[in-house]
């Protein structure tokens, strides 16, 4: 695959063993790394000639949040980072890839991940003064964290 060379570079730089590499359908390889390694991993990927970041996916699992950084050059390469739900902080990669800004801002608003060094941490999708918690989180948790959920509009009444 065209991403094999980059994966070898990543293995050498970050000292990752073979077991953290997973093959997904449709020619996609996924590498699990630690959150402290994100900046050096992105630097290595850029140096290896892959400059296209397709998206950043955030998702909430049982006791953790997972960030997936999807790179692409003929084949896909995904970096997988687990974040403990008690410490949802990670370095922003916007200085290396300015195109990541919207993806990070979206993950910040929808899941509450804090990207350290994000150049413009203003709301992108949600309205000003949003009180409804983090919309994409599993429901129980969103309500527990923010009990003042936006009330539903009553029929016939304008807000």
């Amino acid at each position: 695959m065209s991403t094999d060379k980059t994966i070898v570079n990543l293995q050498n730089t970050l000292k990752i063993d073979r077991s953290s590499i997973k093959l997904l359908p449709m020619n996609e390889q996924e590498i699990s790394i630690e959150k402290q390694q994100i900046l050096s991993a992105v630097e290595t990927i850029l140096k290896s000639g892959i400059s296209h970041l397709s998206a950043i996916t955030c998702q909430q699992l049982e006791n953790e949040f997972v960030l997936l950084y999807h790179f692409w050059k003929s084949d896909g390469l995904t970096l997988r980072i687990s974040l403990d739900e008690k410490c949802l902080q990670i370095d922003s990669i916007c200085l290396l890839i300015p195109g990541a800004e919207f993806y990070e801002r979206e993950a910040r608003e929808m899941f509450g991940i804090e990207f350290l060094g994000l150049p413009n941490p203003t709301p992108l999708l949600l309205p000003d003064g949003w009180q409804g918690g983090y919309p994409m989180r599993k429901k129980e948790q969103a309500n527990k964290e923010n009990p003042k959920d936006t009330p539903r509009q009553e029929k016939g009444k304008s807000v």
Partner: peptide, 9 residues
């Protein structure tokens, strides 16, 4: 759908 993940473009 069997458990798993996929990226598609």
């Amino acid at each position: 759908v069997p458990a798993g993940e996929v990226v598609s473009r």
